[in-house]
Design a protein around this nucleic acid. Structure first.
Length: 499
DNA sequence: AAAAAAC
């Protein structure tokens, strides 16, 4: 571990960090700060929750120096309002021992306060594109001296929904500037596009490219949601012991609202964040969640990126995301700053192709979602994809990846994959083929209703209690239908539901 | 196609 002092960070910034208990630099910070300080353009890529914000933020603050001249000298652009608030708070912390002033500029809020701060001479602006351009058009935000420019969640900022705005913003800042782009995901085509806005950028990756994309601290569990009462199952997960805060993602704003109402009706203390809410209500939810007044947050993908909340132990994908990038960012709300987390994904029947895509892109090596979630609290042993291993199941034998093979062929292939660590490419191809097969089976449920066994479990579960060992039964019968083996696990699985 | 992002 390197300290910030050793990286050449100014003492007042070091003091601000250590006041928050932050002394050692994370790898992405060790790599980018020494380059960012002298003004090197950087594309910084590091996994979720590994400290990218300080990776660009510290150089920005330090490069502005102690120049008291008012006016915007640094611009940090982010994709959502909540992220603007968060990055603003980080920058405000970094500048707490110097006079540099920071302002957050984003929509859904009164203009007045933001304009006042700009007029008062704010030097660092953190904002979302719409309001930034709005105020720039009104000549209330002068970007002509913003020689420090950062795109956070850069791949998102450069995708179609934002690109026109970003081009507009780049046309307003000086041509000679220091430009930093950061994200956990940086697809090749986006990197190529990004170079248009940069000068000889260095692409820094904080991890071995061969390591894969997934965060090693996060365990991924994937369940088929066909004919599953997801609300019920999610409620049960929320009752599991050993749970801290949980973020639940839905595909639509309506689904998010419906779920938060449902969960609150069931007595949970949940909040929502989505684009149909007033900004005030969004921020109330976020603040309540961060402060621990609510321990469940239901969100659309507005909260998929960047949001950093301590002690989120679970991410639940009520609906599977569209692509692997979104999957990675959503899951990355847990397992941050060295902590561990669990990502649970429910795959609806019509979304099997999305799972196939994500499974292949993230190299989970899991041909299909496991059998329907059984409603028992012992879910954590059902499927255990060793993250950060490129899905090389063989490399984690003690993990005992067990699933219910849908066909003999699937079983054979799974064993094949488990045995031969060196055949990743071949296995991946065969996995892809298998997923294709299961998807192509069309009208027939890929897991036949034979999982009625699980339906039975569900019915039993209505009683509310379970014996701790998953291998045991619910109703006196041995668990015959429970075809998968279960493994006792310390957290969450060993305890009664506590319903 | 949804979500996000200005009023």
């Amino acid at each position: 571990m390197t300290t910030f002092v050793e990286l050449g960070v100014d003492q007042d910034i070091v003091d601000a960090l250590s006041a928050k208990g932050i002394v050692d630099a994370f790898p992405i910070q060790e790599q980018t700060i020494p380059l960012g300080l002298p003004g090197q353009d950087i594309i910084g890529q590091a996994k979720t929750g590994t400290g990218k914000t300080f990776g660009f933020g510290i150089p920005v603050v330090q490069r502005l120096g102690l120049d008291p001249a008012p006016g915007v000298k640094a611009l940090i652009v982010v994709p959502t309002r909540e992220l603007a608030v968060q990055v603003y708070e980080d920058m405000d912390m970094l500048t707490s021992n110097r006079s540099t002033s920071v302002v957050a500029i984003y929509g859904g809020k009164a203009y007045e306060g933001q304009i006042d701060q700009l007029k008062a001479g704010a030097q660092i602006v953190v904002g979302t594109p719409g309001r930034l351009i709005d105020l720039n058009n009104q000549r209330l935000l002068d970007l002509s001296n913003a020689t420090e420019v950062v795109l956070d969640e850069a791949d998102k900022m450069l995708d179609l929904g934002f690109l026109a705005d970003i081009e507009k913003i780049f046309s307003k800042v000086p041509a000679v500037r220091h430009t930093q782009l950061f994200s956990a995901t940086m697809p090749g085509p986006i990197v190529a596009l990004a170079r248009r806005f940069m000068t000889n950028p260095i692409h820094m990756r904080a991890s071995d490219p061969d390591e894969g994309l997934t965060q090693a601290n996060i365990k991924h569990l994937v369940y088929r949601a066909h004919s599953l009462d997801k609300d019920e199952v999610i409620a049960r997960i929320l009752q599991a012991e050993g749970r801290g805060k949980t973020v639940i993602f839905t595909r639509t704003k309506r689904a998010a609202q419906k779920l938060v109402d449902e969960l609150n009706d069931r007595g949970f203390n949940a909040g929502a964040v989505h684009g149909d809410m007033s900004q005030e209500a969004r921020e109330r939810s976020m603040a309540g969640f961060k402060a621990g007044k609510k321990d469940v947050l239901i969100a659309t993908d507005v909260a998929a990126r960047g949001i950093d909340v301590n002690d989120v132990t679970h991410v639940i994908n009520h609906t599977i995301p569209d692509d692997e990038k979104t999957y990675l960012h959503r899951a990355g709300r847990t397992g941050r700053a060295g902590k561990t987390g669990i990502a649970v994904t429910f795959v609806d029947w019509e979304d099997l192709h999305k799972w196939a895509l994500i499974n292949r892109a993230l190299e989970f090596g899991q041909p299909e979602p496991v059998e329907t979630y059984s409603s028992s609290p012992h879910l954590y042993s059902d499927l255990d994809i060793p993250a950060g291993t490129k899905g090389r199941i063989a490399k984690a034998p003690k993990t005992e990846t067990v699933r219910v093979p849908r066909t003999e062929r699937a079983a054979d292939a799974a064993e094949d994959g488990a045995r031969e660590g060196g055949t990743r490419r071949r296995r991946r191809r065969s996995n892809a083929a298998k997923v294709g097969t299961s998807f192509a089976e069309g009208a027939e449920p890929a897991v036949p209703e034979g999982k009625g066994t699980d339906s039975a479990d569900r019915a039993d579960d209505g009683a509310g209690t379970h014996d701790g060992a998953g291998s045991e039964h619910h109703d006196g019968k041995p668990a015959p239908a429970r075809r998968r083996r279960r493994r006792r696990r310390g957290t969450g699985s060993g305890a009664p539901t506590g319903a």
